[in-house]
Nucleic acid binder design. Structure first.
Length: 831
RNA sequence: GCCGGAGUGGCGGAACGGCAGACGCAGCGGACUCAAAAUCCGCCGGGGCAACCCAUGGGAGUUCGAAUCUCCCCUUCGGCACCA
């Protein structure tokens, strides 16, 4: 619907004044609700999603940079006739609110809900087309109750489970710490005490159940390749075999290996210190050293245990036990060492020092036997005693009984088949991906809907009793312990199974749970009958375009994909991949090239810049800095260029006589102008589509510079001129929404420019019949020649031979060959 | 160590097999002005009087032609980091 123009601004205003027009149009857009998305709109849908912010209370220029690009894109999409959903909300649970509570005594809820309106205002300053009527705030019970609901569904399906997991424990504060609260590898951020990992009962989501699909479906989405690569590496699929080694004690020790062909060279075994068999197999003589090694390993920080510096110096101790190599029947020692990780494979490895770098370092450190079983072709014979590094390349099997001479890796399947036939192993695929630990010993998050009853054990809270409310009357103490642990009213519950006394789960959910499905909620944030309105979700999802920082390449995007697949299997959505197309912005750094930081005061606030230059100029400046996906250090040096461009465009409109329109009348100047207009339409449309906002702006600047030159000429009275000026304003609307609205009004057009149709490129209007192309002699540029666009090679070369200095170059030479690329160039090879 | 991305004027960048440096900033010269701001016009990679020559991190290669493709190296920014 098009409203009547009843603004008080007069067309006589001659210069651009951002401070006057921006607040005016902001009001008007709000009053007329032009950014509210109508679900009933029959146009093709387009769901543009951009990662919602944490409500810290501050939007700096980095946020502007991230949010303006998708805004420009969504605006063009809407003008191109799509029904666009472009919502926004707040990722409102999380640690900063809780830290504010602990340090300053402000309740997390107060802090969060005071920040949100401020954030909304800061958003609106940039003039985005956000539909605020669909706002989702994840700390609202109306949202987090559905986290709890989904949790219960996952519990039913065995996708949520409780298990013991290693978490950081501070012995001084008597509390669990989040990873980010552990500094320098193993020091408590709060009290400076040395912390260590401790096994506690934790909640997990079984994301590994979906590993195969999470990997394979990456091929089906239009995402930046680096993000896909990072996800693939994180999921980490490895093909190999599981092999069984008999231990002298009678137990079986299973290992996973990607190189079952080297089993003949397995000269010892290494198990993780935490491996359950260690207690059983360690003999009395070694028990003391094994125990102290395990203790030390537990205290070691992740950094100490896994850093490269330490990698060369392997540590470990002998358990006193021996295993039998299943193919050589040799007796081999079993060691424990912290380079073997309990969380991967079986937590035990067969060590083949000749063909594995880590095993070789370990063998050398403890003088263990080394046996070469793969010999590369065309290379000196490997010598176990003198080899400087392990050999991991292709070659022929050696010292391997019946397999001697078999080339690897091409005949690896034969070895696996034989091992399987002999009952010594089986093919296996192993994943690096671990299940998702979702419990947090934190207050400001979604309560996990579980109670513990002395009689019935762990009991889920019935759906009808949701939400389990987070109590707001919480006391925060400097220890950082979650107030829920000591909140009697919260803790006390009735067992849903037997009606007896029960105690509530005090852990809350990882905030990544909130962001794993929030976009579904935007389609109908008030839906009461379930987390997701089935009709709306069918209408709007999957998301057509998702934008955000590459820092979320792995966790958030992987969890979101996992949740979508779970919701699909629950029958709530009809697709498994949430985001069809993903684009990442680069990061805007502080001027020094470092990350913008609040504490160092290097965050740049947009507000003074808006006051001085206007939001439109700042929007353009940010988009003009360089390729959006690249980012870079902030500087405000170039912003005056954007001011000049806007001022010039404004002047073109101000000087345009809306009353006079004469037909082009076949003038060449008018035809030339139409060519330029349509070429610019093509460039701008394509650049926005491809996220090339910097070159999109360059095209508009070129266009306006040309129009400025033509302003005083006769062509400025033609239809072609009006088409050019109107197109300029329409194409500026996504990038500079305020001034475009003003200019549209000055042209006497109906409100709102943002509800107009995007100009359409007409190729026929850009056609030319003469073209100037370069002439090269032996690949070096010498002249330019104007020829017909559709000139034949003979005609083109003939014209080139006589142009300018070309005859001099050809004199006394023989033309050996000519190359003519129509529309591009002519190259004459002479000798 | 492994996996990705990026190296182009004083600066941000454009071109991504075919006229290197679009567009913008800064700078220089000029117009307007009592003056300044704003605006407008011109110049603006290096060398050379010029014809021309050199130039896209360095080196090789493919091609009529390479900033662009291939290989090696250097620098830099991300990610993973003993994953068997």
């Amino acid at each position: 619907m098009v409203a009547q123009d009843n603004s008080t601004t007069t067309v006589s205003q001659r210069t651009w004044d951002a401070a006057a027009i921006e607040p005016k149009w902001r009001e008007r857009w709000k009053d007329t609700a032009i950014y509210a998305t109508d679900d009933a709109d029959p146009n093709p849908k387009w769901f543009s999603l951009t990662m919602y912010p944490y409500p810290s209370g501050i939007l700096h220029v980095g946020h502007w940079y991230a949010y303006i690009a998708p805004d420009i894109f969504a605006r063009m999409k809407r003008m191109q006739g799509n029904n666009v959903l472009y919502p926004m909300g707040f990722d409102a649970f999380g640690l900063p609110a809780e830290n504010a509570a602990i340090r300053n005594g402000i309740h997390p809820a107060t802090w969060t809900y005071d920040n949100i309106p401020e954030m909304r205002e800061q958003f609106d300053l940039m003039g985005p087309m956000i539909d605020w009527s669909r706002e989702v705030v994840t700390s609202d019970p109306s949202y987090y109750r559905w986290n709890q609901w989904i949790f219960l569904k996952m519990l039913e399906r065995g996708l949520a489970y409780r298990s013991s997991g290693a978490v950081w424990w501070c012995p001084n504060d008597q509390t669990v710490l989040a990873n980010e609260q552990v500094i320098d590898g193993n020091v408590c951020e709060r009290c400076g005490a040395e912390v260590y990992k401790r096994d506690l009962e934790q909640w997990f989501f079984r994301i590994t159940e979906y590993a195969e699909e999470l990997l394979s479906e990456l091929d089906s989405v239009d995402w930046p390749e680096p993000v896909k690569v990072m996800q693939r590496n994180w999921i980490g699929r490895s093909e190999g075999a599981r092999l069984t080694f008999r231990i002298e004690t009678g137990d079986d020790l299973e290992v996973f290996t990607t190189r079952p062909d080297t089993v003949f060279g397995a000269t010892f075994m290494v198990v993780a210190p935490e491996h359950p068999l260690v207690d059983i197999i360690t003999n009395d003589a070694q028990r003391n050293v094994v125990e102290s090694y395990r203790d030390a390993a537990r205290r070691k920080s992740e950094i100490e245990r896994q850093s490269t510096d330490e990698a060369l110096q392997k540590t470990g101790v002998f358990t006193g036990a021996y295993a039998i190599n299943p193919v050589t029947d040799e007796k081999i020692q079993i060691w424990i060492a912290d380079y073997v990780l309990m969380g991967y494979g079986t937590g035990a490895v067969m060590a083949v020092p000749a063909h594995d770098e880590r095993d070789l370092a370990f063998a050398r450190a403890f003088d263990l036997p080394i046996k070469v079983v793969i010999q590369p072709d065309d290379a000196p014979t490997l010598n176990a005693d003198t080899m400087a590094e392990s050999y991991v390349g292709p070659g022929r099997m050696l010292n391997s009984g019946r397999f001697d001479g078999t080339p690897m890796p091409e005949r690896l399947p034969e070895v696996i088949a034989w091992l399987e036939q002999e009952g010594r192993g089986a093919p296996e695929v192993t994943w690096r991906l671990r299940d998702w630990l979702i419990s947090r010993q934190r207050y400001w998050g979604t309560p996990i809907p579980i109670v513990y009853c002395d009689d019935c054990g762990m009991v889920p809270v019935p759906e009808a009793d949701l939400p389990v409310m987070l109590p707001l009357d919480a006391e925060f103490t400097p220890t950082g312990q979650s107030p829920l642990v000591s909140h009697e009213a919260f803790l006390k519950a009735t067992c849903p199974a037997c009606g007896g006394e029960a105690r509530r789960e005090t852990d809350t959910m990882d905030t990544f749970v909130d962001s794993s499905w929030y976009w579904f909620r935007f389609t109908n944030p008030n839906y009461e009958a379930g987390p997701i309105d089935p009709e709306r979700v069918k209408q709007w999802t999957p998301v057509d375009l998702y934008t955000g920082g590459i820092e979320h390449a792995i966790l958030h995007l992987l969890y979101a994909r996992f949740f979508t697949k779970v919701l699909r299997d629950l029958g709530l959505v009809d697709h498994g991949e949430p985001f069809r197309k993903l684009r990442n912005q680069g990061m805007i750094l502080a001027a020094e090239g470092t990350k913008m930081s609040k504490s160092r005061g290097t965050q740049i606030s947009p507000n003074p810049l808006v006051e001085r230059y206007g939001a439109d100029a700042l929007r353009l400046h940010l988009m003009f800095l360089g390729p959006w996906e690249q980012g870079g250090p902030w500087n405000d040096r170039g912003i005056t260029g954007m001011e000049r461009f806007i001022r010039r465009a404004f002047q073109i409109v101000a000087d345009t006589d809306t009353g006079s329109r004469v037909a082009d009348g076949g003038s060449e100047a008018a035809a030339e102008l139409r060519r330029l207009t349509h070429k610019t339409i093509a460039r701008v449309s394509k650049d926005i589509e491809q996220f090339h906002f910097n070159t999109m702006i360059a095209a508009l600047i070129e266009f306006s510079n040309e129009l400025t030159k033509l302003k005083g000429t006769d062509v400025a009275k033609t239809e072609a001129w009006h088409e050019a000026v109107e197109s300029l304003v329409l194409m500026m609307a996504p990038g500079t929404p305020y001034v475009a609205e003003e200019m549209w009004q000055m042209l006497g057009k109906p409100y709102s420019v943002h509800q107009q149709r995007w100009p359409v490129y007409d190729e026929a209007l850009t056609a030319v019949d003469q073209i100037e192309i370069p002439v090269q002699i032996n690949g070096k540029l010498r002249e330019r020649v104007t020829i017909a666009v559709d000139a034949t090679e003979d005609d083109a070369v003939a014209a080139a031979q006589v142009v300018g200095k070309i005859p001099e170059y050809l004199e006394g030479k023989i033309i050996r060959r000519t190359i003519y690329v129509p529309g591009r160039l002519i190259n004459i090879l002479v000798g």
